Computed example of a mutant assay.
Amino acid sequence: MNNKPEIVDVIIKDEKQVAEVYFSIVEEKYYFVVYLDILPQVKIRFVGMSAGSRVYLTVSSNITSLKKLLEGINLIPLKTWQKGTQISKRIQNRCYEDSGFTIEYEDKKTGEVEDKIANLVSSLETSDLSHIVESEEIHKVVQVVYYGYKEQMWGIHLNPFILEKVAKLKASIDIDLYASGPDLE
């Protein structure tokens, strides 16, 4: 904005006394990040690129109704759809073949994928998902969309704690990776 850097997010890691300051990059979905030690005094620790990402749960079934799928869910779905309804006004004669919903715990694109997965599955613990988890007719997918800088793509580290929580949902994990950005000289 006005040729000045725009801070889009600041994440404080209390346990490490570190601040991550995220700056947007024009026409890109990844970020420039300045990592700062904030105690005992502020100093730069590292600078680099950080992927933008989304993490959400998709639940769908071609047998179970949307109403039944949503029973016991305490979170507001980001999107819902019903079997037999038109997919989009732009695409004529195309209808959903199943009913379902998506839940995204946080809609910000900054931050670590691992934290987003942990937050999503932890937020679901307050819902009664037994009818979803136990049904083989209901598909459960934790979806990760990762937008990285092509010259600095980091990995995704799924620790046993996260994997155990996803396994309790009997969900699969789908990771879509997108790399973009200019070539380095």
Rank of each mutant, 00 (worst) to 15 (best):
V26R: 15
I11D: 03
A171G: 03
K168Y: 04
K108W: 10
K108G: 04
I103D: 00
K67E: 15
E134I: 02
R90W: 10
Y147I: 05
Y35P: 06
T126D: 11
T64V: 15
I132P: 04
N3M: 07
I156R: 01
L120C: 00
L78P: 02
G52Q: 02
T80C: 04
S60W: 10
L69S: 02
S53M: 05
S180W: 09
D128C: 08
T102R: 05
T80F: 06
F46M: 14
V166S: 00
S127T: 04
E6P: 05
E164L: 10
E106V: 05
F46D: 12
V21A: 03
V33M: 15
L163T: 06
S99W: 08
E71A: 05
T110E: 06
L78M: 09
P182K: 15
Y147M: 09
Y30L: 01
V141D: 06
D176V: 03
T102G: 02
M49Y: 15
T126K: 13
T58H: 08
V21C: 05
F32E: 04
E6N: 14
A171M: 02
L163C: 07
D107H: 13
T80N: 03
V10I: 15
V34G: 08
D174N: 08
I73S: 01
N74F: 04
G48K: 07
I87V: 14
F23S: 03
Q82D: 06
G52P: 02
L69F: 08
E151G: 10
S180A: 11
A51G: 06
